[in-house]
Every structure is written in C-alpha cells, then in structure tokens.
Amino acid sequence: MTGALEKPKLQASGAVNPRRIREERIRRRGFAVASASTAAVVLALWILIPMAPGWSKVQASFFDWEVFAKTFPKLLSAFLVDIMIFAWSAPLIAVSGLAMALCRDVRSPALFPLKLFAIGYNDVFRGVPVMLVIYLFGFGIPGLGLPRPWNSPYIWGTLALVCTYAAYVAEIIRTGIESIHESQRSAAMSLGLTPSDIMRFVILPQAIRRVIPANMNILIALQKDVALLSVIGPVEILRQAGVEKSLAANFTPYVGASIIFLAVTIPATRYADRLIERQNRQRS
C-alpha cells in the first residue's frame, strides 16, 4: 500500500511523468473535439441558412449595410437615453429594494403592518408584468391631471421600473439575510448589540456580499427593460430603431440596436459569472 502511494510521488518530481502526459493528451483531444464540432456547426449554419428560400429577402431587410450605417449613429445617441434612465433607476432600486427587504424582516410585533405591507408589495409587483406597470403608471398617474413637469413619462416610467425591480431586489436581499446563519445573530445578540446594529453591522454586510452576483443579473435585466419605457413617450434606442425601421421598411435598425445592447450586456454577464464563480470557490 505504502509503495503504491509513494510511486507516483517519486515520478511526479521527475521530468517525465506518464500520467501527466496522458492527461495532457486527453485534454488536447478534448480541445480538438470541441473545436471541430463547433466549426462543423458554424459551417452547417453558414451553408444551410442561405439555402433557405426566404434568405435573400431576410438578408435584404435585416442585414442591409447601407441602412445600418445610416441608422447606427442615431441609435447610439438614443441609447444615451437608456443609459440615463438606467443610471438614476439603479441606485433608487438598490435603496428601495433594501428598504423593502428590511421591512419584510422586521420581528417586532409593533411593526407588523410594515411587514404586511412589504409582503403585499412584493406579491403585487412581482406578479404584474413590468410592461403593464409601466403602462399603468405612465399613463394612469399623469392622467390624474398633474401639471408639467410632474406628468413627465421619465418620472412615472422610472417609478414603474423602480417599484417592480425593488420587489425583485428585496426578495434577493431577503434570501441573502436568511442565508446568514442564526449563530451570527446569536453571537451579536450575546454582545448586547441592538437589533438594528446587528442588522447593520453583522447581517447586512455579509448578506449583501452574498447576493451581489444575483443582483448583477438583475442589473442586466434592468438595462434591457429600460427600453420598455419607450411605450410611454421617451424616444430611446428601441423606439428610435422602430422609427427607423418603419421609415425604411427595413429591420436592420433592430439588428443595430441588438448589437448595442449586446455590447453592454455580454461583458456585464461575463463579469457576473466571474463573481459567482469566485464566490463559489470561496465558499467551498
């Protein structure tokens, strides 16, 4: 037994290790198989799609270089509207999501109505499609007869996004809070910290750190959903693409808009994946 255990150890220190060579060979073979199959699939798509009967029509109306070059700069500048809405929505969502999570976590009986409110709030805003909330807020509230600028679609559209996304963020933060082991609370309580100090200094810092990756995914979703505000007036990228599309009767502007979205979401998604991976590694 001892001999069998020692043998690879001895060889590992040497220059030639048959096991390592074998592993290397397997890894290389795996890489080759992956590249070959990917190439085969891409090639098949490359050949098969243009063989479809409607390809030339689709190509003309979705991939028209001239239309692309003409509309892309306009799409880019319309995207600034999306970025703007995102930039002021995200912090508001973070704050209100946290507030809702805390409301939901209250343990004092006196504050029970707050907890009830938080539960109802979450049920409503996670249950209604964000598009409907935008419509209801964006047309309904200004319809009450608010004077300008208080009937701006930017205000009520943002509120719709914030209300909806805060419900999701609250839920994520709450699971984060619940994932912190009860013993942390016990230890903090035994030191005589007040419940609010326990939450602020012991539970939340750990909980928030744990849910950062999940919230990154929420941010990515938000970044896309900002475009939904277009239905209540703002001319952001999706609307601009729609306008260009109907002017040109050509769908290439949508392809352009997709490219702009991807340019933002792909790096963001990769970053979120890396955060999750790092966290998993730390926990194991």
Binding site: S183, Q184, S186, A187, S190, G192, Q206
Partner: peptide
Amino acid sequence: PLPLRRRIGMVFQSYNLFPH
C-alpha cells in the same frame, strides 16, 4: 434584555466570529 445581556458574556462552540 439588552442592558442585562451586556453584563453576561458568551462564547460559542462554533466561535461565531463575524467573517467580514
């Protein structure tokens, strides 16, 4: 219970240090 708890210290089996 808060001021009273402060007069009594407690140490736990699993240490329960705050990891952050």
